[in-house]
């Protein structure tokens, strides 16, 4: 970030990524309601600032691990939209050939090592990927996304201790939307919070307003550079808000209407839009970005709907090399 022009370009890049994530999620929600997408669907509407701000600072060969709410992380890391949408639809052209679905999206070609259906499941994998990269002499780093609910599971303790011990190039990203499924995380979490827990394990933690994509970008830019230079692991605690329910079918009716209204006013896309307008970017340009994103995702939905299903034979593939057929009958 040197001159104003560069800064604007960066803000526009953030805005574009956030609009694409929002459009993907809205499109997926609509498709799920229409019965086009089977299975559980967790969307990240309202949380786009974290994925966008963080991944803008990653290289193609950097890796990420994600959780059950992982569409935004994958998109921001560069995963192909067609392959993602088809995966949600369970079609042959999905990144996982229709064998993973929303909860198991992965795109290894862009360093996206997988969403995860198990809360905190990505933490040990991220730590090991970093250890492997270090062994291979790479200077790539790993960003590990997880929710505030994950910090009460054992792998959080084990993983942070481990990463600190071996000074591994991992950026732990706690996307704190304040809830874990239908429970306010604060009501089940003792102590002074995730950054303090991390610090107690030798992993420095900073807290950032995750709905301010530019702030996430600035923090991530510093942390990624430090980690790549050998600082060892660090943690970014990004506060945000999940504007929709836990899954696509959850109305989240238990939340106070006033809280939801306040959160809507603070959501990240509108905030960045206001800032860009204040910097002199024309509303039409911003509308255009949003419109393009919606068109891109609608087209992906239409394509996925008519894309071929996987051949049933695919169900037998990629189990294992040795011994796959013995139990296959």
């Amino acid at each position: 970030m040197t001159g104003t022009g560069d800064n604007r370009a960066r803000l526009l890049a953030l805005y574009t990524t956030m609009c694409r994530i929002r459009a993907f999620e809205e499109t997926a929600l609509a498709a799920h309601k229409a019965g086009e997408i089977p299975g559980p669907l967790h969307v990240s509407i309202g949380q786009e600032g974290v994925a966008a701000g963080l991944c803008l600072n990653l290289r193609l060969d950097d890796r990420i691990t994600s959780n059950h709410r992982g569409h935004g992380h994958a998109l921001a890391k560069g995963a192909g939209v067609a392959g993602m949408m088809e995966e949600l639809f369970g079609r042959a052209g999905g990144h996982c050939r229709g064998k993973g679905g929303s909860m198991h999206i992965a795109d290894f070609s862009v360093g996206m090592l997988g969403a995860n259906g198990v809360v905190a499941g990505g933490i040990p994998i991220a730590v090991g990927a970093a250890q492997g990269l270090k062994l291979l002499g790479s200077d790539a780093i790993v960003a590990c996304f997880f929710g505030d609910g994950a910090i009460n599971r054992g792998p959080f303790l084990e993983g942070l201790n481990w990463a600190a011990l071996y000074r591994l190039p991992v950026l732990f990203v706690c996307e704190d939307n304040g809830v874990a499924a239908f429970t306010a995380t604060a009501s089940v979490t003792a102590g002074p919070g995730v950054a303090a827990r991390a610090a107690s394990l030798g992993v420095p933690g900073v807290t950032v307003d995750g709905n301010d994509a530019a702030a996430v970008d600035a923090a991530a830019s510093r942390l990624v550079a430090e980690i790549r230079a050998g600082s060892g692991p660090q943690l970014l605690h990004a506060t945000t808000y999940r504007l929709t329910g836990h899954t696509s079918t959850d109305p989240a009716a238990w939340r106070l209407a006033a809280d939801v209204e306040a959160a809507r006013a603070a959501e990240p896309i509108g905030r960045l839009r206001d800032r860009l307008l204040a910097e002199g970017i024309a509303a039409a340009e911003l509308d255009g970005i949003r419109g393009e994103a919606l068109a891109e995702m609608s087209a992906a939905r239409a394509a996925a709907l008519t894309a071929p299903w996987p051949d049933p034979a695919v169900a037998w593939e990629d189990v294992q090399d040795c011994g796959a057929m013995q139990g296959a009958d």
Binding site: F108, L113, P124, G128, G132, N161, W162
Partner: peptide, 28 residues
């Protein structure tokens, strides 16, 4: 020490880190 890694008593991560390291091309 880089190839013979004595670890903490952290079985979840011993297993999961082994997997993560395999996913980037090593053979733990």
């Amino acid at each position: 020490e880089s190839r013979i890694v004595s670890t903490p008593i952290s079985e979840s991560v011993i297993m999961g880190a082994g997997l993560g390291a395999a996913l980037v091309g090593t053979r733990p």
